[in-house]
């Protein structure tokens, strides 16, 4: 394999975010048949005063395809700033790639939302191509205030 995992990873991110922007209905082509996706729950209205967004979990390429098609408008409006990427090899014989991304995203008219995302790429079986097997996003609040009344655990 000629390319480093960084090169493959960055090229993937370029394709991934570009396709969201240009053709959401084809984003699911990047996923494996049994992929799992935890992504922005677009069915819930964004709360203007909240600095995080809820997520929803989907399993399988078909459900993922429906998700991106149904939320076509929002998905294509997504704007992303990536602040860091960490890469590791993973899976059998380390032929897969794990990417840990941090950054901010927004949609027209919204504030920025800070997020972390983990994506796992596995060799697709075709020469030098990869499928997404896992994709998890989690939004990060600011946690600005010091803890004054910490909840007790039971």
């Amino acid at each position: 394999m000629g390319a480093t995992i960084q090169e493959i990873g960055y090229a993937f991110l370029e394709t991934y975010y570009h396709r969201m922007n240009k053709d959401p209905s084809k984003v699911s082509c990047l996923y494996s048949q049994t992929a799992e996706l935890t992504h922005t729950n677009y069915q819930v209205d964004f709360t203007p005063s909240s600095d995080t967004l809820p997520t929803v979990k989907l399993t399988g390429k078909e459900n993922i395809s429906k998700f991106f098609t149904r939320n076509n408008k929002k998905v294509s409006d997504l704007k992303v700033k990536v602040e860091s990427c960490d890469f590791q090899t993973t899976g059998s014989s380390h032929s897969g790639i794990l990417i840990l991304i941090t950054g901010e995203m927004f949609w027209t008219g919204t504030p920025t939302y800070r997020f972390v995302q983990t994506i796992i790429l596995a060799p697709s079986g075709y020469r030098d191509t990869f499928d997404v097997t896992n994709d998890v996003i989690r939004f990060i609040g600011d946690n600005l205030l010091p803890e004054t009344d910490v909840k007790e655990e039971t």
């Binding site: 960055y10 704007k79 992303v80």
Partner: peptide
């Protein structure tokens, strides 16, 4: 080996993040 300068922007120019960023700042 791959030298990449962060942040990376996708589907938006850096300036477009300013307005959205200031909304977040107001929430802060």
């Amino acid at each position: 080996a791959t030298s990449v300068e962060f942040p990376l922007y996708f589907n938006a120019a850096p300036e477009e993040f300013k307005e959205a960023g200031s909304k977040r700042h107001e929430l802060r």
